[in-house]
Simulated assay, not measured.
Amino acid sequence: MTLFEDLQLIRLALRRQSQRTSRQALTRLGLVCEGTPRSPMRRQDGTRGDSLYYSLLAERWAALRDTLRTGIGAKTSVASGLTPPAPGQ
């Protein structure tokens, strides 16, 4: 099952704490940073921190999906000696 095709989503959004998860990793995946609310929540340890909001639109999903499949296929093929799948397969 895929989020955009099967569930017919038009937008995927996620919130992350500013200390966790690499910002570069999310932007490399094609997510766009939409903003940084300042200290919106209290953490379990009582401290406060900023949140970052990211999103991915359905229009960008097809290109991202093909890029991910190509990258994963290339890594798998190197390890197994196989040819990676063509984009869109």
Rank of each mutant, 00 (worst) to 15 (best):
residue 89 Q to V: 14
residue 26 L to H: 03
residue 42 R to F: 09
residue 19 Q to V: 03
residue 73 G to H: 05
residue 41 M to C: 05
residue 28 R to K: 12
residue 85 P to Y: 07
residue 43 R to T: 03
residue 55 S to F: 11
residue 17 Q to P: 03
residue 85 P to L: 09
residue 71 G to A: 04
residue 16 R to G: 09
residue 52 L to D: 07
residue 38 R to P: 00
residue 38 R to Q: 04
residue 87 P to E: 15
residue 49 G to I: 04
residue 76 T to D: 03
residue 31 L to N: 02
residue 41 M to W: 07
residue 17 Q to G: 07
residue 79 A to T: 04
residue 6 D to E: 14
residue 6 D to L: 11
residue 32 V to Y: 11
residue 39 S to E: 12
residue 52 L to Y: 09
residue 64 L to D: 00
residue 24 Q to V: 06
residue 46 G to V: 09
residue 47 T to S: 14
residue 25 A to S: 09
residue 70 T to P: 00
residue 73 G to T: 05
residue 57 L to P: 01
residue 62 A to H: 11
residue 6 D to Q: 13
residue 34 E to Q: 07
residue 8 Q to I: 00
residue 37 P to N: 06
residue 84 P to C: 13
residue 74 A to I: 07
residue 52 L to A: 02
residue 35 G to F: 13
residue 2 T to P: 02
residue 14 L to N: 03
residue 83 T to A: 12
residue 52 L to Q: 12
residue 3 L to Q: 00
residue 6 D to F: 13
residue 87 P to N: 15
residue 29 L to K: 08
residue 18 S to D: 14
residue 60 R to T: 10
residue 15 R to K: 05
residue 6 D to M: 08
residue 86 A to R: 14
residue 60 R to M: 07
residue 32 V to P: 09
residue 40 P to V: 10
residue 62 A to P: 12
residue 85 P to R: 04
residue 40 P to A: 12
residue 88 G to R: 07
residue 67 T to A: 13
residue 23 R to L: 06
residue 33 C to V: 01
residue 39 S to V: 01
residue 45 D to R: 06
residue 33 C to K: 08
residue 5 E to Y: 00
residue 80 S to D: 12
residue 68 L to I: 13
residue 33 C to L: 11
residue 4 F to M: 04
residue 46 G to T: 09
residue 67 T to V: 01
residue 60 R to S: 15
residue 13 A to S: 05
residue 55 S to I: 11
residue 59 E to M: 01
residue 51 S to H: 07
residue 23 R to Y: 00
residue 75 K to A: 15
residue 30 G to Y: 12
residue 9 L to F: 02
residue 48 R to F: 13
residue 87 P to L: 15
residue 31 L to G: 03
residue 63 A to S: 15
residue 42 R to K: 14
residue 21 T to I: 05
residue 65 R to E: 12
residue 58 A to N: 07
residue 38 R to C: 05
residue 15 R to Q: 05
residue 34 E to H: 06
residue 73 G to V: 07
residue 45 D to E: 13
residue 59 E to W: 01
residue 30 G to L: 13
residue 45 D to C: 11
residue 85 P to W: 10
residue 46 G to Y: 09
residue 11 R to Y: 03
residue 33 C to R: 03
residue 21 T to H: 05
residue 53 Y to A: 05
residue 83 T to E: 15
residue 81 G to P: 10
residue 31 L to M: 13
residue 63 A to K: 12
residue 55 S to V: 12
residue 66 D to M: 03
residue 48 R to N: 05
residue 25 A to Y: 04
residue 82 L to R: 13
residue 27 T to A: 07
residue 40 P to W: 11
residue 52 L to W: 10
residue 15 R to M: 02
residue 8 Q to H: 08
residue 29 L to S: 14
residue 25 A to I: 06
residue 29 L to R: 13
residue 67 T to E: 11
residue 72 I to T: 09
residue 36 T to M: 15
residue 18 S to I: 10
residue 47 T to P: 01
residue 10 I to S: 04
residue 67 T to P: 00
residue 79 A to S: 08
residue 67 T to I: 01
residue 54 Y to G: 04
residue 54 Y to F: 14
residue 58 A to Q: 11
residue 23 R to N: 02
